[in-house]
Design a protein around this nucleic acid. Structure first.
Lengths: 245, 245
DNA sequence: CGGGACGTTGACCTGGATCAAAAATTGTGG
DNA sequence: CCACAATTTTTGATCCAGGTCAACGTCCCG
């Protein structure tokens, strides 16, 4: 299994440094491993935290809890993703990171990683790249939430998950595992469960894709891309991970 | 005028490094300065770009152009902000950065800044911190767009702008300059101009704040905070920049 | 085999969009 | 300083995507 989700859009002149940095981080983390249950919090909003993680198996999410019970899943973490990098720099941060499924993760003490970054510019660059890549995804998601309608948002999410899972070898062809409840999908898309359900029904009825028992089957990549198209950025429109069927 | 928007939430153990890094970046940029007109693009979506900027005066925004004419203002850049840091790492990126007002900015060649970061871990840390801080704001904004209603979004924006302007000495008391059209505000909040106008009218009529000729006058910080409250993160709820009247 | 998630569907409601048009403001050249 | 055009703000009337409420079906696990 690949160790990272790749370096989409990276500047080619820094590829070698990124690879070395990635390897060095992975090496420093390898001895450690921790198991989290489904629903367990890897870190809790508002509290300081001392570790940085790399998800090995399972899905997690950055979750914003709003006082009146509303929730927003801000980011989905898949295997290979580094998470809580931001905590290297901030002494606390408002969001929790919660496990969508059981999760196994390698981890490293922040202080140690900071030292590593200080001694090894490749590591610093790799961390910077992770932050940049997270930012890129967030930019996309802001555009989706701000300007997309429900169909566009759902289609974009599905394409994005499929592409990312392909990069780490967890999806091939037209099928992938989606271990999120419709409630959680709604909390990520800014929709209610009820509406998520209706959108999925329409997708099913119009032959776009089917979700059964946490398995997504894409029946028409072409239709799916067409639905998501306005929300895809220039890069995604030409990336093989998005476009191959 | 302060040179940066501060290091909200930074880990205290890295403060000195951040300050040194900031100064070193500023020093490397100082000889350069460029003027942009209102509406001009600092960088164009989809194209590679070679510079990193620090806004000295004026407002800019990261803008996502959707093919059918929809637009999303993803982030607002104020004086003191570094922008296009992400381009250090990515060879192209989908968004434009456009000037909301005339802008003067210092700049530096990316290659030079990368070298600087490589030689000086303080600079690398400062850049990393900028990425982390951008991410924090984006997380907030995802929550606002995903879960907030129009009043909450508007109130949150106003509080946020006031707090950030205060940090760089461009707002004091209850008044600040807001050089965005209602159209642009809508493109940032995910609303139509028409609805932005109605929300502002309600705010005016209920004694929250008034916007006249690009000047915002907050009549009741308390009411404004109350409206925004669900969208504010733990940090913002206790920050003096948000809470002092 | 009973209870608690989770998914599905229908009936109805509402926040914000859309369409259209008028008023106010800003900028521009003479 | 004024006239005129372009941009921005404001308001009203109407519509609809998605929310809310309520119920029922289904799957799983102890």
């Amino acid at each position: 299994m690949p160790t990272s989700t790749g370096y989409p859009l990276h500047r080619s002149e820094i590829y070698d440094e990124l690879e070395r940095g990635d390897l060095n981080i992975l090496r420093a983390m390898l001895p450690s491993e921790r198991l989290f249950d489904r629903g367990e919090s890897i870190l809790i909003g508002g509290e300081p935290h001392d570790y940085v993680y790399r998800i090995r198996t399972g899905w997690a999410a950055r979750v914003r809890h709003i006082e009146d019970g509303r929730r927003q899943l801000i980011t989905i973490f898949l295997p290979g993703d580094l998470c809580a990098v931001k905590c290297l720099l901030m002494n606390r941060q408002p969001d929790a990171i919660e496990c969508v499924t059981p999760v196994t993760a390698h981890f490293i003490q922040q202080a140690e990683l900071r030292t590593l970054a200080r001694l090894d510019p490749d590591v610093a660059l790799r961390l910077m790249f992770q932050l940049g890549e997270d930012e890129r995804r967030l930019h996309n998601w802001v555009a989706v939430l701000g300007r997309g309608d429900a169909d566009e948002a759902m289609a974009t999410l599905m394409l994005d998950l499929r592409a990312r899972l392909r990069l780490v070898g967890l999806a091939n062809g037209n099928t992938f595992k989606l271990p999120m409840t419709q409630q959680q999908i709604g909390e990520h898309l800014g929709l209610t469960v009820v509406h998520v359900n209706r959108v999925l029904r329409r997708f099913r009825e119009s032959g776009v894709l089917t979700v059964t028992k946490s398995i997504v089957t894409v029946h028409s990549s072409q239709k799916l891309r067409q639905l998501a198209s306005p929300m895809l950025d220039v890069f995604e429109k030409t990336s093989p991970a998005y476009n191959s069927d």
